[in-house]
Simulated scan of single mutants.
Amino acid sequence: MNKSLLVGAVLGAVGVTAGGAVATYSFVNATQYAEVLAVKPVMETIKTPREVCKDVAVTRQAPVKDQHKIAGTAIGAVVGGLLGNQVGGGNGKKLATVAGAVGGGYAGNKVQENMQASDTYTTTETRCSTVTDASEKLVGYDVKYDLDGKVGQVRMASDPGRKIPVKDGQLVLSDEAAK
Rank of each mutant, 00 (worst) to 15 (best):
T132Q: 11
V58D: 04
E113I: 02
L5V: 01
E51M: 08
T24N: 12
I46N: 13
L173Q: 07
K47C: 01
K94S: 13
A74R: 00
N2M: 10
T122A: 06
Y25N: 04
K150N: 12
T73S: 15
V79I: 13
S135E: 05
Q32H: 03
A38R: 10
V39I: 06
T132P: 02
G88D: 00
L173I: 07
Y25W: 05
T122N: 11
M115K: 15
P63F: 11
G88T: 03
V64T: 07
V78L: 13
Q86D: 09
L83Q: 08
V16T: 12
V42D: 09
N29Y: 03
G76R: 09
P160C: 01
Q61G: 10
G100K: 00
N91W: 12
K110V: 09
Q86F: 06
I164E: 00
V143L: 06
K110R: 01
G80P: 03
G89K: 13
G103W: 05
I70L: 15
A74S: 13
R50N: 06
D142Q: 14
G90L: 01
R155K: 14
T120D: 13
K47M: 05
I70Q: 11
A62C: 06
R60W: 04
N85A: 06
T31N: 06
Q170I: 07
T124W: 05
L95G: 00
S129C: 03
Q61Y: 11
D55P: 02
Q112D: 08
M115W: 10
V87P: 10
L37C: 06
V78F: 15
A178S: 13
L11Y: 02
T130L: 01
C53P: 02
V22K: 12
V166S: 02
C128L: 04
E51Q: 14
A13N: 15
L173E: 06
V139L: 14
K167T: 08
A30M: 05
S129E: 15
T59Y: 15
G20T: 02
A157H: 08
G80L: 01
G108T: 00
L138Q: 09
Y121A: 04
R127A: 12
Y106V: 09
Q153T: 15
Q112P: 00
A34K: 02
S26K: 10
I46F: 05
R162V: 10
T17E: 10
C128P: 08
N85K: 02
I75C: 09
S129T: 13
Q32T: 07
G84K: 00
G152Y: 07
Q61T: 08
K54M: 11
Y145D: 00
P41L: 02
A57G: 10
L171N: 02
K167V: 05
G152P: 00
N114F: 11
T132K: 08
G81Y: 01
M156P: 04
Q86C: 07
K163H: 05
D146N: 15
D133Q: 12
S135N: 06
A74M: 14
T31K: 03
P41C: 02
S129N: 08
R155Y: 03
T59P: 00
P41E: 04
T48C: 04
T123C: 05
V151N: 15
Q67R: 04
G15P: 07
C53N: 11
T17C: 14
Q116W: 07
A96P: 01
K163P: 05
L11H: 01
G104R: 03
G12Q: 10
C128F: 03
M1N: 09
K150M: 08
L138N: 11
L6Y: 11
G92K: 08
E125R: 15
T24Y: 14
L138E: 12
